[in-house]
Amino acid sequence: MAELKGNDENVVFVGDKPVMNYVQAVVTQIGEGAEEVVLKARGRAISGAVDVAEVLRNRFLQDLSIESIETGTEKLEGESGTVNVSTISISLGRR
């Protein structure tokens, strides 16, 4: 199961902001010398994480490759009980 918790500084948590905000965050981390950056998202933000990875690979950093993709499920407590939410973790690295 993919965990979205952690303090790793090379992790970008994708949410509901515009895709380009996350693209800029990854470009900044790579520019500062990070060898690998991990995009993490859950629920409806998963498609945004995929968009970020594709925009990065096709328009900004052509030498960036997808190292791994992990999917999972997280249990969240809500007002109506426990809800299962899908998660994704996309590791991007230089070729």
Rank of each mutant, 00 (worst) to 15 (best):
E70M: 04
E35Q: 10
G72Y: 07
A25I: 00
S47T: 14
E32K: 14
R42P: 02
E36H: 05
S47H: 13
G93C: 07
D51M: 13
K17Q: 14
S80I: 01
K75L: 10
Q29T: 07
S65N: 13
A2D: 14
L4G: 11
G15T: 13
V19S: 06
L39C: 06
I88S: 05
N21L: 05
G72K: 07
S91K: 15
G72M: 03
V85Q: 00
L56T: 00
V12T: 11
D51G: 00
N21D: 15
E54I: 03
V14G: 04
R94T: 10
R57W: 00
A45R: 06
G31V: 09
V27K: 13
L92D: 03
E54H: 06
T28R: 11
A53G: 01
S68T: 15
S89E: 13
E79I: 13
L4C: 09
V83R: 09
E54Y: 04
S80R: 11
I69T: 14
I66P: 01
V52T: 07
G93A: 14
G48N: 08
E54T: 08
Q24K: 07
D63I: 10
V23T: 01
V12E: 09
E36G: 04
V83A: 09
E36A: 11
R95G: 11
Q29Y: 08
N10H: 12
A53T: 04
N7K: 15
